[in-house]
Design a protein around this nucleic acid. Structure first.
Lengths: 226, 226
DNA sequence: TGTACATCAGTGAACGCGCGTTCACTGATGTAC
DNA sequence: TGTACATCAGTGAACGCGCGTTCACTGATGTAC
């Protein structure tokens, strides 16, 4: 989820280092640059308002150069989401993987992971740049079915990821209340996506990590050892 | 928040009744029609992709007719958000007002209100059409400062609304855990905005009310009478 | 080691369409006297 | 009750700019023999 900021940040860094000296780039590097600028533009203005002209101006190629990398604009949309979903997955795999290594109890591992997630979110330099899934949701009609399906699968993969953890926890710590674990898994996505919106709207980057910490509190109460 | 659906639905109804027989409309009715079509278009495709042409085609006036009602497109954006925020406020006032009448205990009143909110959301004919605040957040750069400020105030008014309730509850039922009540008030917005996104992405209208009911569970646990 | 050809990563010019905005004008209804 | 004027709710035509897309072409690098 924080990939927006991290990825974009790295790209800018790369850009200032490698572009200052004019030199031949590899095609895949240009493609990555386009995707990087496109992602932050889409999160700030939406897909329709992000023009190919502004992307090529930022990257320093001509329009035909763009169409060498993407067959049309909707191909860009697809590549953007694919890249975003993969990056998100990698970050969560890494983060919760590290949390698990530190702790073999499923509940404690999850709580540590949530804390690390909140800290990662709190350490972003500015407010979270946004979630592409959310952005695409609110521009649904712009995309074809394959993109909408990717978006759906993205959400469902988060559900599956956290549902699995909750199942492992529930096995050892029976819930103190009657609760739907799919809903509780979805709650992570809800609070992150909702928290991003609140942080952006209020312009207070603390709100998002605060919401994650509240979820952590909720988990502790649901699986409290009485 | 459900105003999107409810409002739009009513407008369509009005439209089919009153527009079938060609007759002179009052200007304010035309304006409302424009706003209704614009709102659902913006929630489906974003503001930039919503053209004045499509709105006037839907309403049945010429382009100049549009500019009689709105001085430019950004004036439409402003009117859209103003109307949305007011409608949302009215709905919440009404809903929690009714819940309070049924119950004088602040905790029980809140729990009843949350239940009613979840039911209202569950009873929508389709997935929730979306929250304009969230849509605008993800198209930030399209709007001027006054619109961004309206969005901010919208979120903060939800915080104040629910914070007040939580304070009243906490006075009678001391929280069982150490918790930031501002964050807990924001959680309603988070879960509603996040839940809308999940419901839209997964195309399952049950997710949103499910998230509200989880919040209700959380409130019960935080203010549990031991 | 040299040459032939293929692939990669683009360039440059042109295209037409849709967009938001402006301007002079209008016909029906409302109001003042 | 009749007339003069104002306001309301639009119309019609034109504007230029920016957009996504296409097409024929190119110069540098990689690969086969």
């Amino acid at each position: 989820m924080p990939q927006g900021a991290v990825g974009t940040g790295l790209l800018y860094l790369w850009y200032s280092k490698n572009m200052a000296t004019v030199q031949k780039r590899k095609g895949s590097e240009t493609r990555e640059l386009i995707l990087g600028f496109a992602e932050s533009a889409v999160l700030e203005k939406g897909f329709a308002a992000t023009s190919i002209d502004e992307l090529i101006a930022a990257v320093g190629i001509t329009k035909s150069g763009f169409f060498y990398h993407f067959k049309d604009k909707s191909d860009l949309a697809k590549a953007l989401l694919r890249r975003y979903l993969d990056a998100e997955d990698a970050i969560l795999d890494d983060l919760f993987g590290r949390a698990d290594e530190l702790n073999e109890d499923p509940l404690h591992g999850f709580l540590v992971g949530l804390k690390m997630l909140a800290e990662l979110l709190a350490d972003l330099p500015a407010t979270h740049p946004g979630c592409l899934v959310a952005a695409y949701c609110y521009q649904d009609r712009l995309f074809d079915q394959s993109v909408r399906d990717m978006n759906r699968e993205g959400v469902l993969s988060w559900r599956a990821r956290f549902r699995k953890r909750l199942d492992d926890i529930a096995e050892r710590y029976p819930p103190t209340v009657d609760i739907n674990l799919d809903d509780m898994a979805d709650m992570v996505s809800s609070l992150v996506d909702g928290g991003i919106i609140l942080s952006k709207a209020v312009r207070d980057k603390g709100i998002l990590p605060g919401q994650v910490m509240l979820y952590r509190e909720f988990v502790k109460m649901v699986f409290a050892t009485r």
